[in-house]
């Protein structure tokens, strides 16, 4: 604390030993991972998912769509790790290849709802007044619907495609982001650093976008992460009831739906393995939240 000593013109400022260097972002990520084993596990699980999503097509031992009438409904074995389904397709390959589609749907849906929700929430939180009232009541209206039923309605109305699943999932998530960001922005609207930014010649819009909004990110990251898991479940749920992704495309939700018919007759592997994959993905995103928050929070830096 030697720098607290001298006044510039009175006492020469003692030079600080340059022992301190601000951490780089990468060093900070490594620090966060080391500090919390749960976060480390979550990131390892995430990288497994990402590898499956990117390289699933190459890793898969069989063509996920190729049927084989000679080996239908085989239980798990060394040849077919997760067994085969009713038309002889390899379940392991199908679970693996499905990762990409499921992650795509959830990430795109969450990004879309984050962007729209954040914009609406930030505007409502910063300017308040009638804009806030109108936006908030509109979002309350969306939340008043049973959300899954709303998503079903949207997909049914717009048409049975993957894009429409993404839109439906995004729309039902917008209110959560908008509310969270509205509250966080509102909290910081009159904070010292926002006033200081105005004094530095920033317009209202710039104060909001460059100064207040980035500070709301840490809590929002937790929401994003939980939401990714939730969006996967939602997409799988829609596929399960026959909306959205259509067979024979490999997708966890459809695979669970198809396998469900065979559980009663003892062929459990068709539904259980895609179900476990779904669980693994949701669990990963649930664990990831705190780690993501720590990474985007500069105050956690040493």
């Amino acid at each position: 604390m030697s720098s607290d000593l001298g006044t510039a013109s009175v006492v020469a400022t003692p030079t600080q030993p340059a022992s301190y260097q601000s951490q780089s972002t990468l060093a900070h990520i490594i620090y966060v991972l080391r500090d919390n084993p749960v976060t480390l596990i979550a990131f390892i699980m995430l990288s497994v998912l990402v590898v499956c999503a990117l390289f699933g097509h190459w890793i898969a031992p069989y063509d996920p769509l190729a049927t084989d009438s000679s080996s239908i409904l085989q239980p798990p074995s060394s040849q077919h790790w997760f067994g085969t389904d009713n038309v002889g397709r390899d379940v392991f390959s199908r679970v693996l290849v499905a990762t990409r589609l499921d992650l795509q749907i959830s990430i795109m849906a969450v990004s879309l709802s984050f962007v729209i929700g954040a914009t609406l929430g930030a505007i409502a939180g910063y300017w308040g007044g009638w804009i806030d009232i109108v936006l908030s009541r509109f979002l309350d209206t969306i939340m008043a619907f049973p959300l899954f039923v709303l998503a079903m309605g949207i997909v049914a109305a717009l048409g049975n495609t993957v894009e429409n699943i993404i839109y439906a999932t995004a729309i039902i998530n917008i209110p959560f982001y908008a509310r969270l960001i509205r509250a966080e922005v509102n909290l910081r609207r009159d904070s010292g650093f926002a006033v200081a930014a105005k004094l530095s010649g920033n317009s209202d819009l710039r104060v909001l976008v460059q100064h207040i909004f980035p500070n709301t990110l840490p809590p929002v990251m937790v929401q994003v992460s939980l939401n990714l898991g939730w969006a996967i479940l939602n997409a799988a749920g829609l596929s399960f009831i026959g909306l959205g992704v259509r067979p024979p495309t490999p997708e966890w939700g459809i695979m669970v739906a198809e396998g469900a018919n065979f559980i009663v007759s003892g062929e459990w592997w068709m539904a259980v393995f895609p179900g476990l994959a779904l669980m693994f993905a949701v669990f990963t995103f649930n664990l990831l939240g705190d780690g993501l928050r720590d990474i985007v929070d500069p105050r956690k830096r040493k």
Binding site: S3, G6, T7, A8, V11, T13, P14, T15, Q16, A18, Y20, Q21, S22, P298, R299, R301, K302
Partner: peptide, 13 residues
């Protein structure tokens, strides 16, 4: 009287 080495620090540091 702020040492130059502190310019890269964040407020909480």
């Amino acid at each position: 009287g702020l040492p130059h080495s502190l310019l890269s620090r964040f407020p909480h540091q």
